[in-house]
Design a protein around this nucleic acid. Structure first.
Length: 212
DNA sequence: AAGCATCCCAACCGCTGGTTC
DNA sequence: CGAACCAGCGGTTGGGATGCT
């Protein structure tokens, strides 16, 4: 097949970007726009691979980036969105203008995750609350799942296990027998794939609150 | 002041899904 | 149709900054 390799690793720099590299990249993108990251380093005269240029631009050089600390609203929004999307940082970043997936991921890992883990009431909630997903996934159903929005500004007296506004539920199960197209012999199930039913929808919050 | 521990974040690595040849 | 490429994503890490003893 007639394509050249992604980048010549022998002639590419690694590690921290220099000011000159930043300026070259910025100037090139301002002149030619984003896109075609593969050919960009050569065209811009940068000893970097396209992947590295893309990352540097998106995470650091883009003019519309919001620098500085996350606000309380952003903080809470991230927690909410994480409860919906899990570790889909790009989706979460899409809801926070001026923030990058990398930034949010770092913020989550260094600030929010710890805050949620520290909260003793949250630990209790994790232990007692039913799992959100019937079929567990590491990003949303494991010990790191943030089931509650529990930050220190909530007085302990008023704390209760309030779920975020949105919570998608994914169920996977075998279809009930009457839905089977034909009734196969047991041995057929042993060697052939089974049809699965998947439901995607919202939680019944009352059930999770134990209020039904 | 020096040494050590911890925090934080920029950047790299490896994987995936879509596209191109 | 399969192999290779490409962009994008999430996980991980290296090392500078900061705090503590």
């Amino acid at each position: 097949m007639g394509r050249s390799p992604c980048c010549e690793k022998a002639h590419t720099n690694k590690g921290a970007w220099t000011k000159e590299e930043d300026e070259r990249l910025t100037a090139y993108i301002e002149a030619h726009g984003e896109g075609c990251w593969r050919s960009l380093p050569k065209a811009a005269g940068l000893p970097r691979c396209g992947k590295s240029c893309r990352l540097r631009w998106i995470n650091y050089l883009r003019p519309d980036l919001k620098r500085g600390n996350f606000t309380g609203e952003e903080d809470q929004l991230i927690v909410k969105l994480h409860s919906v999307f899990g570790n889909k940082w790009s989706l979460i970043a899409g809801q926070l203008p001026g923030r990058t997936d990398n930034e949010i991921k770092n913020y989550w890992n260094t600030h929010i995750k710890r805050k949620l883990l520290i909260s003793p009431t949250n630990a209790t909630a994790s232990a007692s609350a039913p799992p959100i997903l019937s079929g567990t996934t590491p990003s949303t159903a494991g010990p790191e799942r943030p089931p509650t929005l529990m930050t220190e500004e909530v007085p302990s007296k008023n704390r209760h296990y309030c779920l975020p506004d949105l919570n998608l539920e994914l169920n996977m199960r075998l279809p009930s027998p009457p839905q089977w197209p034909t009734a196969p012999a047991d041995e057929d199930y042993n060697r052939e794939s089974l049809p699965l039913c998947c439901n995607l929808g919202f939680h019944d919050c009352n059930k999770l609150h134990g209020e039904d």
